[in-house]
Design a protein around this nucleic acid. Structure first.
Lengths: 195, 195
DNA sequence: GTCTATAGCGGGATAGAC
DNA sequence: GTCTATCCCGCTATAGAC
């Protein structure tokens, strides 16, 4: 009946990730101890090392998983249509993907400096790859005259920063629904690059 | 001649702030030790406690000083003219104030969660006060028909997030000068709230 | 796979001499 | 005002029993 005590790798593994995600998002990587994470999971600190070689790898896995999900989801989006339609699709995708992942997004921006140089480079490359998705849309629209963007790279960074800001104040039970917020942000984005 | 050894309060005080600013900005509050700060200043760890009652107060002072400077400088700006002129003035002021203060700005956004609840409330109130400066401009412009802003509060947050993003990628020796960058951002801001 | 126990280190903060 | 020395605590990571 009850499975043998002390054999829960398939359960404990995800729980470690979830606990680390929540605690690091709330308190910061440097401020969270392996003991805290273990306590949240319901094991002793030593047991965590069955799932991660060290604390650094735990952080890296959280960030890599998040970026992999982001890139995979974006890859599956429709890439056809006018540049305006593509820009709207990017805007709405970005909001819809990021908003339900507040902890992951927060960590991905706040804890970059706590990555080892090697790990940092890997995450940065993935982030750059994602940004290129928007940059290409803006460049195409600029060339064909749909958009007026003095500097495509700056506009890319500016728009992503604007969209990311949403995560810092959005609350599920706020006065506006997700659809309304999406539309308001799309209005800002659309006009900011308009001719 | 040489002043009496062990009496440098007027020199050491600012050096402690400067060292804390630099180190916390680079590594994060939780990751920086009082010993590291002391080493950067050139004293022993115990000597720091002549200048701060504890580590928490050191962080709070950094953030409070930054916000006080911001509010004081903004208060001195010209508040007259059309709403469009006021919006341009805010945009350029924000960029010009924040860009040379990369460490302070970074800390003010990254280390909020390391403030005690009391200190957090004080900093948040100052930030909110500053945001109101932009919010008022947008609301006035919306009322008189100069701007088309579906939601003033969201637009305020979105524009500030966009402008703050500049700090994360700007480098002094980059391909664009400060004036050019200001103008590019002003173009994005102006159009995003245009009718 | 998890536990207990611990090694080895570094943290914040204080005491008291100078 | 700064120093040295230290208290007491918590940290990451490992060892070995079960």
């Amino acid at each position: 009946m009850a499975r043998k005590q002390g054999s829960h790798s398939d359960i404990t593994g995800p729980k470690v990730q979830a606990a680390a995600l929540r605690l690091i998002s709330q308190h910061g990587f440097a401020a969270v101890s392996m003991r805290q994470i273990a306590a949240e999971v319901g094991v002793q600190a030593g047991a965590l090392y069955n799932y991660t070689p060290d604390k650094q790898s735990l952080l890296f896995e959280l960030m890599r998983n998040h970026m992999q999900d982001l890139l995979a989801d974006w890859d599956q989006q429709d890439k056809s249509g006018t540049t305006l339609a593509r820009l709207e699709r990017f805007t709405r995708f970005h909001i819809r993907f990021n908003l339900p992942r507040a902890d992951e997004v927060f960590i991905s921006y706040m804890e970059l400096r706590n990555l080892s140089p090697d790990n940092f480079a890997k995450i940065e490359q993935m982030r750059r790859e994602y940004e290129t998705g928007l940059e290409d849309i803006l460049r195409d629209g600029e060339r064909e005259g749909t958009f007026a963007v003095p500097d495509v790279r700056i506009a890319t960074m500016a728009l992503i920063a604007m969209l990311n800001g949403l995560n810092s104040w959005y609350r599920d039970n706020g006065r506006l629904g997700l659809d309304e917020i999406e539309t308001i942000y799309w209005d800002l984005v659309r006009k900011s690059v308009a001719v």
